[in-house]
Each structure stands twice: as C-alpha cells, then as structure tokens.
C-alpha cells in the first residue's frame, strides 16, 4: 500500500487514488496532422522504464485532482509529487 502525497489533501493510502499511466504525453494539438505511425505512437507506446518513472495519479476518493508522481519502478520510492497541466520534463532525482 503506497503512501501518496496528494498535493492538495496530503498523504493518503494508495487505495484512494487511481492510476493514469505515464505522465507528460500531451494529446497532440491537431491529431489530423499526424501520420498513422505518429498517432499510434501517441496511443500505444509508453516508455516503461526500470527506475525513475513519471506517472499520473488522480485522487479519486478525495479532491478528484490529477497530478504527477515520480516513482522508482523498482523500489517504489516516490521522489517527487508535482502538479501542473504538463510541466516540462525535468531531471528526476
């Protein structure tokens, strides 16, 4: 049971949240301009790293806000929780 720090409500058990997959994959502004391959890349391809992973969570049982979490996929340690519609990708810790 991970302990996730909701940026608004504070630390809560994982059970209050829903997972939203990899973060910082912006919906293309004009999908019609994308080739099939580029659109497929947006739809289906994710980095699935071993180690630091930036991912989206929503505090489903709380304030219903979406936010980003940087979590190590091996140790599950959370190094960063941050908000922002699509914060520029920074260096992970």
């Amino acid at each position: 049971m991970l302990l996730i720090e909701c940026p608004w409500c504070g630390p809560r058990d994982e059970i209050e949240f829903a997972y939203g997959g990899e973060a910082h994959i912006a919906r293309p502004a004009d999908p019609s301009k994308l080739s099939d391959a580029e659109w497929a890349e947006f739809l289906f391809f994710r980095s699935n790293p071993k180690g630091a992973h930036r991912e989206r969570w929503v505090h489903a049982a709380g304030c219903r806000r979406w936010f980003n979490v940087e979590r190590d996929t091996v140790s599950y340690r959370i190094s960063r929780v941050y908000t922002g519609a699509c914060e520029p990708v920074g260096e992970g810790q």
Binding site: A18, G20, R56, V58, A60, R64, R65, W66, A85, C86
Partner: peptide, 9 residues
C-alpha cells in the same frame, strides 16, 4: 474521472 482528466490536464 476521464472528463476531469481532460479538463485539468
């Protein structure tokens, strides 16, 4: 949840 996702992000 999905609609909030689009609106917020």
């Amino acid at each position: 949840d999905r609609l909030e996702d689009y609106l917020q992000t």
